[in-house]
Design a protein around this nucleic acid. Structure first.
Lengths: 145, 145
DNA sequence: TTGCTCCTCACGTCACGTGAGGTGGC
DNA sequence: TTGCTCCTCACGTCACGTGAGGTGGC
């Protein structure tokens, strides 16, 4: 059982935080929510390779906008049914998230257009010189300066 | 003083909510935070044209990712110093928000790429037929099906 | 009196941030 | 004994959502 695959390196809270760019509070919060379950050594947490991998998955999922509850459910699917069970659970969730992210991106693009237009108007009204805004926006507010 | 510009239409909470797509709770929350100050008629709120306009500004600002505190500060700048005072306050805030929104959009694009790749992999491993994913993603995972 | 609309608390949600104060091993 | 690291409460933040229960005018 002392195979070549066993990764025995363990990490303290601070070490894992440094590696992952998270905070101790975040790690404890994930643990509280059932996403991580580090061992203990006199109160102090010991993170094994498994926890390190799970943390990476949590962070990737967060970037994609999944809730911690959804991440937990996917972890549970993996623990109870293995990789394929997890995939069956995950695929529809992933598709839904893809659609939602595209909507979010479009909304941000719209907001950017609105803000750029408003900024250009304000700059013009404030009499700023060369307000450095896109031409098509300036064209309507300040044609042929 | 009974000029032609005075807009005398007033709205109830429910009416303004319908027009703006908000909820009563949101309107009361904005009031609590000092962003709206509707008149009263026996407890009931009466929203004038001014409040209606401010609500539109609040919603536009929210879309752009401004906090309610920032919106409040801009409203106060307007009330105390007029349009130009508000513009002077707003312009740097707008520029900062533009930059932040572009970062957010780029992060969403990255997350979309990650998710699409992961979805494609999962679909392949689940043996799905014609998993309907972009060609360039499928090409590496399932070349020449 | 029955509905309908409007209201006021006040706790819940989500993902943590932020002190306050205590412990353990070098 | 002094530091350093790690810990456990527990309240705060942001923008509301969500009942619970009360009031006013048709």
């Amino acid at each position: 059982m002392t195979g070549t695959c066993a990764r025995l390196e363990t990490l303290t809270t601070t070490q894992l935080c440094r590696q992952s760019g998270t905070t101790p509070r975040a790690l404890r919060f994930y643990e509280e929510k059932g996403l991580l379950s580090p061992q203990r050594k006199n109160q102090a947490r010991i993170y094994s390779h498994r926890e390190k991998v799970r943390l990476q998955l949590i962070l990737q999922a967060r970037r994609a906008g999944f809730t911690l509850k959804e991440v937990r459910e996917l972890f549970e699917a993996y623990d109870k049914g293995g990789r394929d069970a997890q995939r069956v659970r995950a695929l529809p969730l992933f598709k839904a998230r893809l659609a939602a992210l595209e909507v979010e991106r479009a909304e941000i693009s719209d907001a950017l257009d609105e803000l750029r237009t408003a900024s250009a108007r304000m700059a013009v009204k404030l009499g700023a010189i060369r307000p450095e805004v896109p031409d098509q926006v300036m064209a309507s507010a300040n044609p042929r300066s």
